[in-house]
Design a binder for these strands. Structure first.
Lengths: 196, 196
DNA sequence: ACAACAATGATGTCAACGACAACATTTTCG
DNA sequence: CGAAAATGTTGTCGTTGACATCATTGTTGT
């Protein structure tokens, strides 16, 4: 007979994986430590060994989200070839793609990022954003963007991207062609920013 | 002796007011129907007469938020005089001002807007956004923005605004001068969009 | 005036949850 | 091998949202 099975092996990963699915499917508020424990086949207090409280699990989830997003961005940029404009388009589409695929997770990521004490989340976020900032700096070096603090210049661009993501998630972009709108807006922005 | 006081008078408003304060001070997740009832001096089930469940209260809060935001935007635009550029700057600053003053409420507003079944919230949101769209259309009529679907052109602008708000809330705009960054970014956008 | 009736609040109850303490088993390591 | 650290389990507590039922007050038709 199989009594209680101590030492699950990698309960932490199992919980995170299940939680990530739940967030995507039913939103952050649907995350319950007890339900997670049930679904993973462990006792209701087992998750406590890995996450002191519910918030700790959410933070871990957010951190993982930033890692995945960062990977997506990196891969998209690399796959886009050497020219600047295609690279920026790829960056934008990758970001919007992530946002629309995991809206609840993205919300969780931003929420976690700004709460004090969540150092891991903040660092993961910084690592992710550095990918985008590097792309901006690249454009400046190539003379396709006005020089200056990449942060300063990147702000407008990134703000627009983030805003587009919010609007895409919120269904404010009518019908389907989110991708077209993104392409169009990015071009608009680049045209405006290109030195003349 | 004062027994139970039936018929509070305007319990609904009282609950909403208290809830709005709690959201601003401690975030959406801190909203508890029972605590709200206690603070308002009423039994734990009384709120149920006015809000069938917790979500209904949050929706009402979101709707009220959109009304207030709409008012802020309208007033700011009117106070800015007739010229287009100052009006857009006023719009932007009013929006960012609301966002930084009530970050949790704004998050709640957007969350409610996109959940199906929340018709009231959606309508309130539409009324609010129509204020911004009207400003864009105004710019097009005056030839200061490229013509076309105001939605199309306004998208970039509004997305940027929304993104800036997110970043301001998230503390991504270092130190204080959020207002300066907003001014700068709006000018950048307008320069890029102005027909030449 | 007064008897339905609607509106609104109070009480009581239940299941689920997060948090915590105390205990059990397995793994690791000196 | 044996102590100690890791990791799960069981049991409990206070809080919460939701619901059913009852009590009081306001309103309305006659």
């Amino acid at each position: 007979m199989t009594g209680p099975r101590y030492h699950h092996g990698n309960l932490r990963s199992a919980l995170l994986q299940r939680a990530a699915r739940t967030v995507d499917e039913r939103g952050v508020q649907a995350i319950s430590l007890r339900e997670l424990a049930r679904e993973t086949g462990v006792s209701h207090a087992a998750p406590r060994r890995h996450f002191p409280d519910r918030q700790a699990l959410l933070d871990a989830l957010a951190e993982e989200g930033f890692e995945r997003l960062g990977g997506d961005l990196r891969r998209a940029i690399e796959a886009a070839g050497p020219a600047f404009r295609p690279r920026l388009h790829a960056l934008a589409h990758a970001y919007i793609g992530f946002a629309t695929s995991h809206p609840a997770l993205l919300e969780l990521m931003f929420a976690g990022k700004q709460r004090e004490g969540a150092d891991g989340v903040r660092e993961a976020a910084d690592r992710t954003f550095s990918v985008a900032l590097a792309a901006i700096a690249e454009g400046q070096a190539g003379g396709e963007l006005p020089p200056g603090d990449p942060g300063q210049v990147g702000f407008g661009a990134f703000a627009m991207l983030q805003g587009l993501a919010t609007m895409a998630i919120g269904g404010m972009i009518d019908s389907a062609p989110v991708d077209e709108v993104v392409t169009c807006v990015v071009d608009q922005l680049l045209d405006g920013l290109t030195p003349r």
